[in-house]
C-alpha cells in the first residue's frame, strides 16, 4: 500500500511543520508529483481525505497535485525524450541505455495557511 504509506508520512511532515511555524490551520497543500512516481492520484486523494480528519491542523485542507512530466535521457545519443510516450527505448536512436532524469518525485511544494 504505497499511497497510504506516503500519506502517513506527508501528514506527519506537515504536522511537524505546523508545530514549528506555529500554524493552527493548513487550508491547502500543493504537491508536485512525477508522472511515473507510481502514485495513483485518485487513490491518493481518497487516502488523503480519509487521513486528514485525524489531524486537527489538516482536517479541512484541500490536496492539490501538480504533475511533473517524466523525461528520459539516452546515453547513446545524449538526447532526451518524453518517458510516458516512448518508454525505455530511445525514439531518436533505438538504444535501450536510457535513464529517467525527472518524473519520479513527490515533493511538498507549498502550503496555504490561516493567518
Amino acid at each position: 500500500m504505497h499511497e497510504m504509506g506516503i500519506i502517513l508520512h506527508l501528514a506527519k511532515s506537515l504536522e511537524e511543520t505546523a508545530e514549528k511555524e506555529k500554524i493552527k490551520k493548513i487550508t491547502r497543500v500543493t504537491l508536485e508529483v512525477g508522472e511515473v512516481s507510481g502514485i495513483m492520484t485518485d487513490y491518493f486523494t481518497d487516502c488523503w481525505d480519509y487521513f486528514k480528519k485525524r489531524h486537527p491542523v489538516l482536517d479541512t485542507a484541500a490536496l492539490e497535485i501538480e504533475t511533473i512530466p517524466a523525461v528520459t535521457y539516452c546515453s547513446s545519443c545524449e538526447k532526451t525524450y518524453p518517458t510516458v510516450q516512448y518508454g525505455r527505448t530511445c525514439p531518436h536512436c533505438g538504444s535501450g541505455e536510457t535513464w529517467l532524469i525527472q518524473g519520479n518525485e513527490c515533493i511538498i511544494k507549498e502550503i496555504e495557511v490561516e493567518d
Binding site: 506516503i6 511532515s13 515533493i107 502550503i111 495557511v113
Partner: peptide, 17 residues
Amino acid sequence: MKIIELKETVTASNDRD
C-alpha cells in the same frame, strides 16, 4: 491566508527520524 513555500519531500519527517 498566507502561502508558505516548503519544497521538501513528502518523506521529510521520516528522513529526520
